[in-house]
Design a protein around this nucleic acid. Sequence first.
DNA 1: CAGTGGTCTAGACCACGGG
DNA 2: CCGTGGTCTAGACCACTGG
Lengths: 239, 239
Amino acid sequence: MTTRSTYLELADRLADQLRDTPPGTRVASEYELVASHGVSRLTARAALQELEHRYLVQRVRGSGTFVRRRIDYTISKHIVPSFTATVAAAGARPGTRLLSVRRRDPEPVHSYEPEIADGGSIVEVRRLNLVDGEVAGVLTSVLPGDRLPGLEEHLGDDFSLHTLVSQVYGVQLQRYRHQVLLDVPDRDVADLLGDEAPRPCWYAESLNRVKGTTQLGEYSYTWSNPHVIRMVFQIEEEG
Amino acid sequence: MTTRSTYLELADRLADQLRDTPPGTRVASEYELVASHGVSRLTARAALQELEHRYLVQRVRGSGTFVRRRIDYTISKHIVPSFTATVAAAGARPGTRLLSVRRRDPEPVHSYEPEIADGGSIVEVRRLNLVDGEVAGVLTSVLPGDRLPGLEEHLGDDFSLHTLVSQVYGVQLQRYRHQVLLDVPDRDVADLLGDEAPRPCWYAESLNRVKGTTQLGEYSYTWSNPHVIRMVFQIEEEG
DNA sequence: CAGTGGTCTAGACCACGGG
DNA sequence: CCGTGGTCTAGACCACTGG
């Protein structure tokens, strides 16, 4: 048994201490570890970064290192596809911030867009998903523009898109196809998520129908931060 | 627009060059980057590590840095739950290595174990999943011991567990519940996966029934390396 | 054996946050 | 303003891989 490296030993010891520490608690700073463990700053830093890679802590420049909490975000057939409801169910405070609303023609490259537009235009909504005030994801939603006139006026922060579309326009959306994978986003999405560089993130894609019909009503995709959200996917059989 | 850090600029430039490079190709070493870009070794190293975090390259001590390929591993209702078949379908060479077979009593702590044992014992199989010879995951499978007498003699490397159970014992397994999430494994699992320290990995849990009955026939869980496997989960509605 | 990546040191400057 | 984390340098020793 070879001895593990100094920074991993240190990280493991810190991880043990953090097991029962409530979220938000401050962790020793790099210089404090230098003083208390007689290691160089780079070694102390490597240990704290190791904890960050394990989703245990969050590091904030100028402020410090803090214990992090991950939210269980469950996706299954039986759960309504609503960010707000799902986060609230997990015991955290959800929020959203509107980034942009854009009207444009459907692009035939994406086969679903003409079908959603249904002979008319496309309205594309982009927003940030927040958990306890922290950016947890970026949502882009593609909707039928002609069916949702004046959508811009109704939109704002902390809205539920599906509720709005249902209550104001009488269009109810129903899950049709859902797909999720782990991948590395582009620079611009990483920027929106607050990451300096692209990090592996959840990519969730949804195709929803207008309830009771076979008409496509929405296509959306979301990049979510795995540090904040611990997604759970469930597939169940009947019987 | 603030200037990005040196190592990220370097990483982005290298990532661009790697876009159309075939898997297995060698990437410039740390010292080569030091010589060619006039940076310190730590900066060159940070750039290469950045690429590793983006799943673009694999770094091997004593050997070098190489372009990596990720396998699409799709899980959906309509696809048979077989590692071998799924990997082969993705165009890669699957393999498995038997780690251990153990017989024991069911533990009532896990409610499914007595149900699987069905009044008898439990047989627990552990194996490594390989993709192109590289460790991609660790599988642990819990099966009814009394129904599979002499299972040990039939097991070996590069076997399909479900095929064996079906052909030798006439027990066909059918998907019942499936759950997947991203989490950080324990030290021992990280060791088996070849990681020095625990890294975020896929955790896939399966509960399967004996075909045509409501009898539980298998419980299994797999830790998979996201660097090798790019899981895709699909949920589809009927109609 | 030479070359690779993994670790560690001591020291420096910077950007940022909060009192 | 001070303390935080983020970056960078120069130099060193190590473990491992391959010819």
